[in-house]
Amino acid sequence: MTKTVVLGALAGVGLLAGAAGAATLDDVKQRGTLNCGVVTGLPGFGAPNANGEWEGFDVSMCRAVAAAVLGDPTAVQFVPTTGKTRFTALASGEIDMLARNTTWTFSRDTDLKFDFIGVNYYDGQGFLVPKALGVTSAKDLDGATVCIQTGTTTELNLADFFRKNNISYEPVPVETQAEGQQQYLAGACDTYTTDASGLAATRATFENPGDHVILPEIISKEPLAPLVRHGDNDWADIVRWTLNALIAAEEMGITSANVTELAASAGDNPEMNRLLGNEGNLGEMIGLSNDWAVKAIGAGGNYGEIFEKTIGENTPIGLARGLNAQWTDGGLLYSPPFR
């Protein structure tokens, strides 16, 4: 009897404390840094450079949020996570947001209790094969040995694809990008499969990138999205609209070069004025200062700039915009209006 009372009391205290810790925004402001979960090392998306500074596409998302909330794009504590640890790190509050090329799926959104705040990269799973193999379609891969990074949705897609096409394969699970590359180059597998962006990034590091081709089939939809804990809607709004601000900024032609100039005085585009805090009080509505978007865009530029700098065609990764172009250019990026 006494024991149950004690247990109950302890549980009650736990619940109260849990409720108190739910306001992520306050935590971040009080801490002065944003804890952002990133990949342990994927060139172009998130990897420490030779000086130990994190850079990459997902990393820029963290920096933009830090700039919007704290005014300082460097006030980010990057927490490297593996496929296994990323969700626990977020659920347990170790990180405030996760920007780690994570695919938005139904069960992750609902069963695992996370909120995906919007797609920052539309990806799909592809196959990388040596040219010498003479394979032109993924359907020719019957009986092939396939290297695959464990702990990702790609594993499930792969099983589905081969089952659907009634062909067989032998999986070789690998733990990291580097090991996948190593196995593939040693010929321990015929093909390496992961998100097409990751394949491009991997191929870029090869001795002779031209000897390898990415097969035309894209076997899955992989909308990669940053995510936050379920239940803290204020925080989710901040991250969501920071992403939207970056996308909208590109659409409106706001770049890191001209953002301070444009924000200095109200122009004749009312939406741009609202975004940059010259009109209305959008910042206050999400609990931030009115120049939040200016800071976010100033951190690393708009979506297009970030893309070009980290994974675009002029980088070793060399990805085309493709689906990730603005809707006005035939892509899927379409920010809701700032109103």
Binding site: L10, V13, G14, G18, G21, A22, S92, G231
Partner: peptide
Amino acid sequence: SNLFGNLAAAG
């Protein structure tokens, strides 16, 4: 109790 508290908080 921490476990159940945390789980309940996270749903």
